[in-house]
Simulated scan of single mutants.
Amino acid sequence: MRNIHIFLIFTFVVWLTACSKNNSPAHLPEGSVIFQQAAGKDTIEMPLSILKDSAIVVELRAMLANTGSGSDHWVNFAVDSTKITDYRSRFGEGSLMPTTSYLFYKPTVRISAGETLSEIAQINFGLQTKLKEYTTYVVPVVIQSVDGKVEGVATERVVYLVFKTGKPLFINKDSWTIAGVSSVYATLAAANILDNNNLSTYWASNITESMPQWIAINFNRTITFTAVNYYIPTALNYPTQGGYPTSIQIETSMDGASWTSNGIFAGAITSNMQTLETGEITARYLRFTSLASVKYISAYDAIFISGISLVP
């Protein structure tokens, strides 16, 4: 009886092994699963408006490089951020798309038995208003695995999804820094003009200095804009206490060393701010200079500026 049990168990194991082999995907040659993308075209480019948030769907397919297979195969797409270096070396400037702006909704797809094309893989994009203006964003996509195998079967090719943003609703100041300042009074630091508080925090030039007084900003990226806004603090009780400019020069630069004048403007403050219409300018640096001012409390040549921003 015991021998019969051993024989039955052995037979059952052999049967399971045979079934397992029969259910395994058919062997595929190395590099046989590729993108459904024209040879030599490694980018998919599209403009991307950042004026509002909207749902954008990008679809991808994998395909067999030869004839269809006799069994199903599972293909897994993935984003490989390390490939951004290769993109830059081949195509020029590009920034990785923030992971908060996309979701690989359907990364794993099937190539059905007898077919050469996979189901559609899907990447969803959103939160466009969080992106920077006039920037090239890149999402490098690879075929990560086929039937769980990371190497061999899948092509090593990368397809780059490239999004080029345009004009924004407003120009973000997150990366801005102070490049230089003519003088500072007490603790009223130059960096106060970058803190997005245009009412109560401010930079003040030294009350022992005379005009002109200036402050320079490094955008730390190239920005295109059409006007400059500056603000004075509500503490001045405009125009009661003075301390505001009456003649302003705007200069811009690409390197922080060579400057171009973009006009001299008469002071005309309304509701504690003024817009200086410069016309369209592309620059990496801006210098705001008060050429003349109304004396602060009728005694000191000083200006108090609570914020500077740009108009798209």
Rank of each mutant, 00 (worst) to 15 (best):
M254H: 10
I120C: 01
G243V: 04
M211C: 11
N272Y: 13
E93F: 11
A257M: 09
D174I: 02
I4Y: 10
V181N: 02
P239R: 10
E209D: 08
T165E: 08
K164V: 03
G152N: 07
T246K: 11
I264S: 13
I123D: 01
D42V: 02
T116W: 10
T100K: 09
F170M: 10
S258G: 11
M273P: 00
G180R: 07
T275C: 01
T135H: 04
L161R: 11
I250L: 02
Y185K: 01
V142C: 03
T17R: 00
N124Y: 08
Y87N: 06
T187Q: 14
F104T: 08
Y160E: 12
A302I: 10
V13K: 07
A227D: 14
R61G: 03
A78V: 03
T240S: 09
K173W: 03
A154R: 07
V150W: 03
D147W: 06
S306N: 02
L199T: 15
V14N: 12
Y300E: 09
N262S: 06
M273D: 06
A121G: 12
I281R: 00
K106A: 05
Y185V: 04
G31H: 07
S118F: 01
N218V: 05
R287I: 09
L199E: 12
D72E: 09
T270E: 15
P47K: 05
V58P: 00
I171Y: 05
S145Q: 09
M211I: 11
L291V: 08
Q128F: 04
A65K: 15
H5I: 15
E151I: 14
E133H: 00
A191P: 00
Y230M: 11
T222D: 14
G70M: 02
D147K: 14
A55V: 09
A78E: 08
L117N: 13
W214A: 09
K132R: 12
S112M: 11
P98H: 08
F170T: 15
Y244S: 12
A121N: 08
I303Q: 08
V162S: 06
T129M: 08
L194I: 12
N229A: 00
V142A: 12
I6C: 09
A235Y: 10
T116G: 10
Y231I: 07
N66H: 13
T100H: 04
T234G: 02
S175F: 04
D53F: 08
E45S: 14
G166V: 11
I215R: 09
S20Y: 06
L96V: 01
K167S: 15
L64R: 03
Y244K: 00
S290V: 00
W176Y: 14
I193S: 00
T260G: 03
L199S: 14
N76C: 06
G263N: 03
